[in-house]
């Protein structure tokens, strides 16, 4: 006998004057290898076509489907129902602006983040079409990629104590982005330049060290290490700056 799963889902459509925030329940019969991607699409197609949620690649690569599943932020596409109890409560990610039901506006938040940390290679060189590429050790390339694996799902921000307390906290995702450029020899920025961006309470010194970011990261990024690394680096930069005065 397959289980009957009960989904308790947060509902609110800010664009609909008649809508009030509330919880709705839907019951589905569980099938083999069912994921929340399959379950939510079935609910929308068979029971309530107004239900809003975001999926894109549905393969754990694009980061679209971050939501709070039984109290824990994660990617819905690789959440299997077999790993969940019969009662499943789904809420939208906090911190991000609500679009409707389980859908939130991560795009605007991240675009602002790119501008704050200047998420691009800073170089005084210009590209030479006729030249062979600059050499790089494969190990360095792999170190950069290790941090570049972030999918910007927003789970680390949603699970972050500081981000819940102050709106201007950059969050682990942005700090990890800085760490990514700091290990990249093509980026000419100095520690002093990075200090201008994250050497304050909005940045690395705002982190309370609770580390839920690493616990919930669906890509298992080494966020704890990176935050520690940056805190040390920025601390040293601060002391150097003091002595220079």
């Amino acid at each position: 006998m397959p289980r009957l799963l009960k989904f308790n889902i947060f509902r609110y459509n800010p664009q609909d004057p008649g809508s009030k925030p509330h919880m709705d329940s839907f019951v589905l019969e569980e099938t083999d290898s069912m994921t929340l991607f399959i379950a939510l699409n079935r609910i929308r197609e068979e029971q309530d076509p107004s239900l809003q949620f975001d999926f894109c690649c549905r393969a754990g690569i694009c980061g679209s489907c971050g939501m709070v599943v039984n109290g824990r932020p994660g990617l819905a596409c690789h959440t299997k129902t077999v790993d969940l109890p019969g009662d499943v409560t789904l809420l939208p990610l906090p911190v991000f602006r609500l679009v409707g039901d389980l859908s939130v506006d991560t795009g605007a938040w991240f675009r602002e983040m790119y501008n704050k940390v200047e998420s691009w290679i800073h170089t005084s060189k210009s590209f030479d079409q006729s030249a062979v590429e600059e050499r790089m050790d494969n190990e360095v390339a792999e170190q950069i990629y290790e941090l570049d694996r972030c999918v910007e799902c927003g789970c680390c921000v949603a699970a972050c104590g500081t981000a819940r307390l102050r709106d201007d906290f950059l969050g682990a995702v942005a700090l990890n982005r800085i760490a990514r450029f700091a290990v990249d020899p093509r980026d000419e920025r100095t520690d002093r330049d990075y200090y201008e961006i994250i050497g304050n309470d909005r940045g690395i010194f705002g982190c309370m060290g609770l580390l839920a970011c690493e616990d919930v990261c669906p890509k298992n990024l080494p966020l704890q290490n990176q935050l520690g690394f940056l805190r040390r680096k920025m601390g040293i930069t601060a002391i150097k700056t003091l002595f220079r005065r």
Partner: peptide, 17 residues
Amino acid sequence: VEMRRLAFWGVPWNRVV
């Protein structure tokens, strides 16, 4: 040329070992 341009912009291509 396009692969090299992407390297210049920051793509961490795997390299010859």
